[in-house]
Write a protein that binds this DNA or RNA. Structure first.
Lengths: 215, 215
DNA sequence: TAGATTGTTAATCGATTAACAATC
DNA sequence: TAGATTGTTAATCGATTAACAATC
């Protein structure tokens, strides 16, 4: 697993591999060849073998890959066994939905607290957690060794809050705010820009309609 | 705008351009050069010019780009002016959050209805809409010319529901279900796999910790 | 052993960056 | 006109696919 510089393109495909392998495991499939997996996932077998070989050989010539072993290895690469402490900043619709809907714990993310600047929400129970005021966030983050913050606040405050959190020791952001965070290079940021996604959808619909008209 | 085959890499960057141009417009910046924009957005000026030129020339030699014109053109390319009729399928946490949180109307997406199979939710008011039972969905889609469905249902039902909706005339999916839809090639699917995103975050954190240990 | 399939090298394809001529 | 900056061609880089030798 001495992986140096794996491209983000490869990383982005790993969760999908994991999903398919999980399903195969559930269906009690023991072994699979890159050829079979490629037909299932609609990617080339070549790509599959290249991707896996970025991390060392998980297969066996003449046999293929053992599903459960491959699954475990990819899970390990993705760091799913590691434990992280996470807070949600912003207890609006989206923050609440993520708290309830994402199964954080299953992936080693321990949900430790949720914060909002809106007084009306203070003390509101979300999952088994009470919404706390923003001015208690700094102390909480330091005390509880929080390393990840989920940002579900409006873009106006997001950049500043992120800087504040970095100063308290937060190492990574799952950023739903529609803005680019301004954080040091060693801080990890995974952006989920839903409106960007919606615009891509919009573009592709427009395209597909125009193509039809052309005919 | 006679664009043939623009790569998805380019398309994915357009919403970000639009965001920055919107901010520049709000700050009353009239013109900008690819050089200035590149410094602001931390991408190469070359890429910016290449990206824009996929759609024809929006700039002027010796001057740069007129912010408001460029903004409008990109908005047009993304099809933001077009009108679409949209339903949300799945009125759980995520479905409700999207209904309340996404400003669908601002991007030409008219939110027309929300459906769920859970009886307990029938009639519940979300935004200005009442949750309807799934068995009324087909008729509703046909009657109201729905062309987009947002899928916020568990993955178990998603594939079947998508097929059903395609048969009723739905042309595009914004898919939050953690599964690959099985739909014809001319149907547009934009996936938002939140748990994949969380795994990428997990991987990158693990990597960044390991790098530090190496030193 | 023979057949199958990986791991890996080589070839191709596409996307990004650099360079510069066109032109406002 | 001279200077600036685009639009576009050419060079480079990286990612994907193809091919095949290694080996189970």
């Amino acid at each position: 697993m001495e992986d140096k510089n794996i491209s983000q393109a490869v990383i982005s495909r790993l969760p999908r591999y994991l999903r398919y392998l999980g399903e195969l495991k559930d269906s009690n499939v023991e072994r699979i060849s890159s050829q079979e997996l490629s037909e299932l996932m609609k990617v080339t077998a070549s790509q599959i073998r290249q991707d896996f070989n970025n991390f060392g050989g998980f297969g066996q010539q003449g046999y293929g890959y053992k599903v459960s072993y491959l699954y475990d290895e990819i899970a390990k690469i993705l760091g799913i066994n590691k434990t992280h402490h996470l807070i949600i900043v912003g207890a609006g619709n989206l923050g609440q939905a993520l708290a309830n809907y994402m199964n954080f714990e299953r992936r080693g993310f321990h949900f430790k607290g949720i914060f909002d600047s809106n007084e009306a929400l203070y003390g509101k129970k979300i999952r088994d957690m009470y919404v706390q005021p923003m001015n208690e966030m700094e102390a909480f983050v330091k005390e509880n060794d929080i390393d990840i913050a989920v940002l579900t606040i409006p873009k106006t405050g997001a950049v500043k809050v992120a800087e504040q959190l970095v100063n308290c020791g937060v190492k990574a952001f799952w950023n739903f705010a529609h803005v680019d965070l301004n954080v040091p290079d060693d801080i990890v940021v995974e952006n989920v820009h839903l409106s960007d996604s919606l615009m891509r959808l919009s573009y592709n619909i427009t395209q597909s309609y125009e193509e039809k008209e052309d005919k």
